[in-house]
Amino acid sequence: MLLKKAEERYALKLITPSIVVVMGVIIIPIITTFIYSLVNIDPLSSHRGEFAGLSFYISALTSSAFWADLRRTLYFTIASTAAETVFGLLVALLLNQSFPGVRFLRSIIIIPWAIPTVVNGSLWKLMLNGEYGVVNAILTKLHLLSAYQSFLGSPKTAMMCIVIADAWKMTPLAVIFFLAALQGINPTVYEAARVDGAGALQRFKAITLPALAPTIMVVIVMRTVEKFKAFDIFYLMTRGGPANSTRTLMYTTYLQAFTNLNYSEAATCAYLIAIIVGILTLVYLRIMRREENI
C-alpha cells in the first residue's frame, strides 16, 4: 500500500512539468478566451467589463459578414485541400515508379514544403505582380494573355491565386504521405492483377485507391483543419483584399483583435472557428472509424 502511494507520488512528480505546460499554453488560454467571449473586455467600448452572455455569439452568427467570411474560408479550404490531395496523389504515383533520376526528384520535391510560408507568400506575390510579375510575363509571351493582369487586384482571381500559392507549398507533404503508403503495397498484388489482365486504371481503382484510402483520409483531415486556420498566406498576399474577397474568418479574428481592439469579438470568432474545426474533425474521425470497420 505504502509502496503504491510512493509510486503515485513519484509519477505525479514526473508528470507535473507536462501538466504545468499543458495548463499554461492550452487549458488556461482556452478558458480565458471563452471568458473573454462572454464578458465585454473591449478597451474602447462603453460597456467594458459588463457580462455579455452569448450576445457576441448571437451578433456574429446573425451578421452577414460572418457568413461571407465562412463561405470564403470554406472555398479556400476545399479548393486548396482538393488541389493538394489530387496533385499530391499524381506526383506520388509518378515518384513511385522506377526511372532514372527518381531518387533526385523524391529529394527535391520537399523543397516547396521546406520554404517558410513568409517566403512562399512574398515569392508568389512578386511572381503575380501586375506590373512586373513573371507569371504575367510567361502568360503574355505564350499569348495566353493579351496584356498584364492584376491577379491579386481582382476579386475574381485573388482567392484562386492564394489557393495556388498554398497548394504549391503544401502538396509535397501530401506526396510524402502517399508515397509512404504506396511503397507499403505489396508489388505481387499488382503482378497478380496484371496476370489476370487488369489494366492500369483497373489496378489503380481496385488496388491502389483502396490501399491509399486511410492515408487520403488522414491527409484530408489534417489539411482541412490547417487550412481552416490559415492566416499567414492571406496576410502576406492580399490582407483580405481586394474588396474583402480574400477575407477569411481567421483574418477577421486578427483584424478584430489587432486593428479594431475588439478583443471580445475576436475571442468569439476564434471560438467559433474552434467549434467548426472540432465538428469537422469529429465528422472525419467517424468516417475513418467506419472505414476501418469495413
Binding site: N129, E131, S150, G153, S154, T238, G241, P242
Partner: peptide, 11 residues
C-alpha cells in the same frame, strides 16, 4: 492604372 488596386506606396 487598374493594377492600382493591388498597390501600396512602394508599388
Amino acid at each position: 492604372n487598374p493594377k492600382s488596386l493591388e498597390m501600396i506606396e512602394d508599388d
